[in-house]
Design a protein around this nucleic acid. Structure first.
Length: 561
RNA sequence: UGCCCCAUGGUGUAAUGGUAGCACACCAGAUUUUGGUUCUGUUUGACUGAGUUCGAGUCUCGGUGGGGCAACCA
């Protein structure tokens, strides 16, 4: 497993979230908070894998804490046992670590606070701020009104606190069926903010919780769990995405009550930023799960998935993802980010760090007719011209090679810089060759390209200092390693993709018989990254076995044909 | 006919009342033993209308356009 450290203290230009935090530091609010430091949290729900949108939140939550010398807690938001599972917990932790962040010893669960939340709810009932409603979901929804029409009050709204308290406790003992009763906050059924129309605080769920088992049968809703958990942990800045903006007044309402009951002035502050949208990509957890379950993709970590494990398998580096996040920034504008920004970020990183090798994906045989029979010669190739001291490796050259089929044209079109009959071309790090003819099969398909080589033109020799039309990559037929190469493209045709969008039938193209230079055999660990010269960046897939190499194309090289 | 939020080149994002900049994309050129990299250059922008001000992308108001809110999800 590859790891990397986020240079979280690096200077980035401030965004509005950080400006808010700086204001709160200046106003002394942070110093007056429970842990006296900027304290954030990353609160995933353990019901799916993290995707690149979560990476944006992670970089914000952990990054802001680090920038101001504070801390970020990891907190699993597990208030709905019927849809959550520990299955996801380890994967989520792994992904956060892989991205380069760490929560120290502060890994929590909202379920850690169920008792405190319960006590708080009971106190609210006693204070006349909450009541048990015995109406069905349908009736409650009807009474809620619409955004343009006020709601009406429940007939149970003004029942005595003692009665609500009794029912509330019995809800939790399993005396009532799911859906028959809820605890509601008594606020304002006519509020223009729908979330103030007596929001549900607790509902009955008779499904064992993955951590607390059957201890509880009434569980808090998001609005009565998230902010309260923030409060309990001493969070100063609860940073989330824009869709929670309308929840903020309720967040503050509950926080104020909690502070009053606790006799403090501290309250956490919720700040919202825009979520990540990418062109040609769908981020919906439900949709992603569906693709996994219906076998459309190879799993949550399919290289086409926007999940962090998918990007990792695809060959993306943590650094490239962090760089990308820095580039797109944090605002309140609902933006659609061009996926080419992500691709650019990984090219930048891999250009500096990926070892150069040669691989031929669509091979055609090339025979050097004047090469001494049986002779094998070694050629020296730079591991990475962009990285000083990265060294060289040897590559065998012989009279029978493979080159890329598209690198040869019998009749060259204009601006074709590659091999064509009677013209010279350079084989990178080897010799200059000249095409003398071709052999075709019965269908007219080229099966062998015949060339002569210039013995004085080997790279490094004076004879190599000659302008030629182009430079090609190649492998020696008898030495090359066969490999499977999986070429990846966008998952969706639409730039602005939705769950209704047509999927790209060529999102994955499997090439069974590619040839890779033998050097790769000594470096065939899963996840290793290479540049196949002139083609793109590739990494070794986990499907690789002792006798079969499998590569994923992370991203192609830029092309300016 | 409600409430909340948003609006800067094609895309994303800076500027904190004082020269509209950066990245990606695009186009052109130079370099190049990767049609990669690197370098240089060109084109392209304040939703709209009023107001405040010596001066407005920035502040105010009105339009317009976009997003969110009516789960016993988070």
């Amino acid at each position: 497993m590859e790891t990397s450290e986020a240079n979280v203290t690096e200077k980035k230009s401030s965004n509005f979230v950080e400006e808010f935090i700086e204001e709160d530091i200046a106003a002394g609010k942070v110093a007056a908070s429970p842990t006296k430091m900027v304290h954030t949290r990353f609160p995933p729900e353990p019901n799916g894998y993290l995707h690149i949108g979560h990476a944006k939140a992670i970089c914000m939550d952990f990054g802001a804490a680090a920038k101001y010398g504070g801390q970020c807690n990891l907190r699993f938001d597990d208030t709905n046992p019927s849809r959550e599972d520990t299955e996801y917990v380890d994967a989520i932790k792994e992904d956060i670590h892989w991205l380069g962040f760490d929560w120290g010893d502060r890994m929590y669960y909202a379920s850690d606070y169920f008792q405190q939340l319960w006590d708080l709810a009971e106190e609210m009932i006693r204070r006349g701020l909450a009541y048990v409603d015995e109406q069905s979901a349908e009736v409650i929804a009807e009474q809620k009104g619409t955004p343009t029409q006020p709601g009406v009050e429940s007939p149970f709204r003004n029942r005595p606190a003692e009665e609500s308290l009794d029912l509330f406790r019995r809800m939790n003992k399993g005396e009532f069926d799911e859906g028959t009763m809820t605890l509601r906050a008594k606020i304002d059924m006519a509020s223009p903010n729908m979330h103030f129309r007596d929001p549900i605080m607790y509902r009955i769920i008779k499904y064992p919780h993955h951590r607390t088992g059957t201890k509880w049968q009434a569980y808090p809703m998001y609005d009565f769990a998230h902010g309260q958990s923030d409060f309990i942990e001493g969070i100063t800045h609860s940073i989330c995405t824009l869709e929670f903006e309308v929840h903020r007044p309720l967040y503050e309402y509950f926080a104020k009550i909690f502070a009053e009951i606790k006799g403090t002035t501290y309250t956490p502050r919720q700040i919202e930023f825009n979520r990540l949208n990418l062109t040609h990509t769908v981020m919906s957890k439900r949709y992603l799960r569906n693709m996994v379950e219906t076998g459309v993709v190879r799993g949550w970590d399919d290289p086409r998935m926007p999940t962090l494990c998918g990007l990792r398998r695809r060959g993306y580096t943590p650094q490239s993802i962090r760089d990308f996040i820095t580039t797109i920034g944090y605002t309140k504008y609902d933006a659609l980010n061009d996926i080419r920004l992500l691709e650019n970020a990984v090219r930048n990183d891999l250009n500096k760090n990926a070892t150069r090798i040669m691989g031929v994906i669509d091979p055609v045989k090339l025979t050097i007719t004047n090469w001494p029979a049986g002779k094998v010669e070694m050629c020296e190739m730079d591991n990475n011209p962009e990285q000083e001291g990265s060294g060289v490796h040897q590559m065998p050259f012989s009279g029978e090679l493979y080159i890329e089929r598209e690198d040869f044209q019998e009749v060259a079109e204009k601006k074709f810089f590659r091999l064509t009959i009677d013209k010279e071309v350079r084989l990178k790090s080897a010799y200059i060759i000249k095409c003398t003819g071709v052999e075709k099969d019965a269908e007219g398909k080229i099966v062998n390209i015949l060339c002569t080589y210039d013995p004085e033109s080997k790279s490094g020799m004076p004879g190599a200092d000659r302008k030629v039309k182009g430079t090609l990559h190649w492998v020696s037929a008898q030495h090359a390693v066969k490999a499977e190469v999986r070429l990846y493209n966008a998952l969706f045709m639409d730039e602005e993709a939705t769950t209704e969008s047509e999927r790209n039938p060529e999102s994955e193209i499997v090439v069974e018989n590619a040839y890779i230079e033998p050097f790769v055999k000594e470096h065939a660990e899963v996840g290793n990254k290479f540049q196949f010269q002139r083609l793109g960046y590739f990494c070794i897939d986990k499907d690789t076995t002792a006798d079969k190499l499998v590569f994923n194309r992370t991203v192609s090289l830029k092309e300016s044909k």
